[in-house]
């Protein structure tokens, strides 16, 4: 019984912006299926009365003063850029509205 189908893997891969070859999709579907069935056990003990913990330590209200620090020098900012133009990162055309 498969929880994660190939279609599902393909959908999630698109959501995660990772191109997968068809053989990768097939393999991942099988592997993830096994993993997901196993980890689904957590919902057995995760009953409504148990609160979720998103932080291991109970810290709150960690703030910074509104005081400027020096910015990264522009050459450092652009140093790793695959492509740049006039101080800006050049990226391929973007489809979809802003």
């Amino acid at each position: 019984m498969s929880t994660i189908s190939r279609d599902e893997v393909a959908r999630v891969a698109a959501l995660a912006r990772i191109d997968l070859r068809p053989d990768e999709v097939a393999r991942l579907a099988g592997e993830l299926d096994v993993i997901v069935e196993s980890v689904a056990r957590v919902s057995e003990v995760a009953t409504a009365d148990v609160p979720a913990t998103s932080h291991p330590l109970p810290l709150t209200n960690v703030f910074r003063d509104d005081v400027p620090e020096p910015a990264l020098p522009i050459q450092d900012v652009l140093a790793g850029a695959p492509q740049q133009e006039n101080g800006r990162f050049a990226v391929p055309q973007i489809l979809g509205e802003e």
Partner: peptide
């Protein structure tokens, strides 16, 4: 209208040269 950004201390100022107001965090 704060002096610095929400999650890092890069200065907020309008009209600066591109990419001159970033830290590793805001980049």
């Amino acid at each position: 209208g704060t002096l610095t950004k929400m999650f890092c201390a890069a200065e907020v100022a309008y009209g600066g040269e591109p990419n001159t107001q970033v830290t590793p965090v805001s980049l």
